[in-house]
């Protein structure tokens, strides 16, 4: 009996509607959190695992020594490597490919690499327009390395003390 009266009064005076409007009103004057992507970016953790890259040493020499540990550890079998002896006698890959459709961005490849060659950069804004572009070749990956080296280094430095 009492319940029925309370419900009647609530709907008569639109109390629930006003309560909802009050929330709206409160947020109307609050500081806004919407990020205007792509004009603006959310902050990223230095551990963010995005597009892969193969790094080089400061003298320009590729780091990768074709040890194939990343290939072995990759749970998605996304990495394919072929290797041979380069003219100068060093061990190098002749083919290094990552299939980004297979990759699950787990970062295991990066963890396994003994020379910090394969890394996952914080770059995540990439698209493929044609089938086949999802296979990152060695030259693509080295290009990413050159392009993002500053970021890669900064991210690794920021994370260094937790490792």
């Amino acid at each position: 009996m009492f319940d029925t009266i309370a419900r009647y009064l609530k709907s008569l005076f639109l109390l629930e509607l006003l309560g909802g409007l009050a929330v709206t009103g409160r947020y109307l004057f609050r500081h806004k959190l919407t990020i205007q992507y792509p004009e603006a970016h959310t902050p990223l953790s230095p551990r963010f695992r995005g597009l892969h890259a193969l790094r080089r040493y400061p003298n320009g020499e590729e780091r990768c020594i074709a040890c194939k540990l990343c290939e072995a550890v990759c749970p998605a079998l996304a990495i394919t490597i072929e290797s041979d002896q380069r003219e100068d006698g060093t061990r190098r890959t002749t083919r290094y490919e990552i299939d980004l459709f297979k990759c699950i961005y787990c970062g295991a490849c990066e963890e396994s690499c003994p020379v910090d060659s394969i890394v996952e950069t914080s770059a995540f804004e990439y698209t493929f327009e044609r089938f086949g572009e999802h296979i990152m070749t060695k030259s693509d990956l080295l290009k990413h390395g050159d392009q993002y080296e500053q970021r890669i280094r900064a991210d690794r430095a920021a994370d260094a003390r937790y490792r």
């Binding site: 074709a66 194939k68 072995a72 072929e82 290797s83 041979d84 002896q85 061990r91 190098r92």
Partner: peptide
């Protein structure tokens, strides 16, 4: 066979 493969493959 130098540098062309790994035993586990």
């Amino acid at each position: 066979a130098r540098f062309t493969g790994r035993p586990w493959e």
